[in-house]
């Protein structure tokens, strides 16, 4: 049985259908990359999995660890092990990162029937996980993402992923807005979190990121569907040729 099974998923925002029948099977230990032109549903797919209520699922199902994911509230999905690395992390003035993460870690522990971490256990965990993305600044008292540079925001997403230790992560354009050094740090961070017990979906436009995070599978999401899947070589081909040939190939198939 797959870890995550997306079957014929359709989703709309208002009257506009964005996902038009996505099928995807993900197993533990795998890294998938989803590529595709802008506005074709990549971010929507990640948002729907995380439970963003802006989108309405009109058809299909998503099975996670054998459970119906679409029936779960947003926070239950997270506690079950879903994580979304945001393309645009939200600034929350007045909520410190340490308070935010401590609340999240302990609410997730509560869901799993575990005791909350003590203050010292939590601080120890935080210090350990900061190293994953080479975070050196005194984070604890800073408000979540407030006044962060683009690079700091993305590092903070991966830091949160490290803290929460999810089973199934969707990283939505985690490479956008990063300089070369930050890209390396963020990508290395993701690699450190990769294990045989979890799975990661990397949504990106650029082969560059995949030089660091080498995917097992690459998919092209085009007009709301996955139209082509392959191995990491597909990403190189896309980088070289662009998306035009995908469209041509599809059109010739339809004929």
């Amino acid at each position: 049985m797959s870890l995550l099974s997306i079957r014929n998923l359709h989703a709309s925002i208002g009257d506009k259908e964005i996902l038009k029948g996505v099928n995807l099977e993900i197993n533990k230990g795998e890294v998938h990359s989803i590529m595709g032109p802008n506005g074709n549903g990549k971010s929507t797919l990640a948002a729907v999995i995380a439970g963003n209520s802006k989108f309405t699922v009109t058809q299909g199902e998503v099975i996670f660890k054998g459970k119906n994911l679409l029936e779960m509230p947003i926070d239950v999905r997270a506690a079950e092990g879903i994580f979304l690395g945001f393309q645009y992390p939200v600034e929350i003035p007045g909520v410190s990162i340490s308070n935010f993460m401590r609340t999240a870690v302990n609410e997730q522990r509560k869901y799993r029937g575990l005791d909350p971490l003590s203050a010292s256990e939590f601080l120890k965990l935080m210090e350990e996980k900061k190293k994953v993305v080479e975070m050196t600044t005194k984070l604890a008292n800073r408000s979540v993402n407030e006044g962060f540079s683009g690079g700091e925001k993305k590092k903070n997403e991966i830091f949160q992923m490290a803290m929460l230790d999810p089973i199934m992560s969707f990283l939505d354009e985690t490479d956008s807005g990063l300089d070369i050094d930050a890209l390396r740090i963020v990508a290395n961070g993701v690699n450190k979190l990769r294990s045989s017990e979890n799975a990661i979906v990397v949504i990106t436009h650029y082969q560059r990121l995949l030089d660091y995070i080498v995917p097992d599978f690459v998919h092209v999401l085009y007009e709301g569907k996955i139209v082509k899947s392959g191995t990491k070589e597909l990403a190189l081909e896309l980088e070289a040729k662009g998306y035009e040939w995908i469209r041509e190939e599809l059109e010739s198939k339809q004929k």
Partner: peptide, 26 residues
């Protein structure tokens, strides 16, 4: 912001309280 907070596993009630508290904190 509510979606962001809840996506980390924080219940709706706690997320709202966090945001209200943050509002007061200033």
């Amino acid at each position: 912001a509510l979606f962001y907070i809840r996506s980390r596993g924080i219940s709706e009630r706690t997320a709202k309280t966090l945001l209200m508290y943050a509002f007061c904190d200033e």
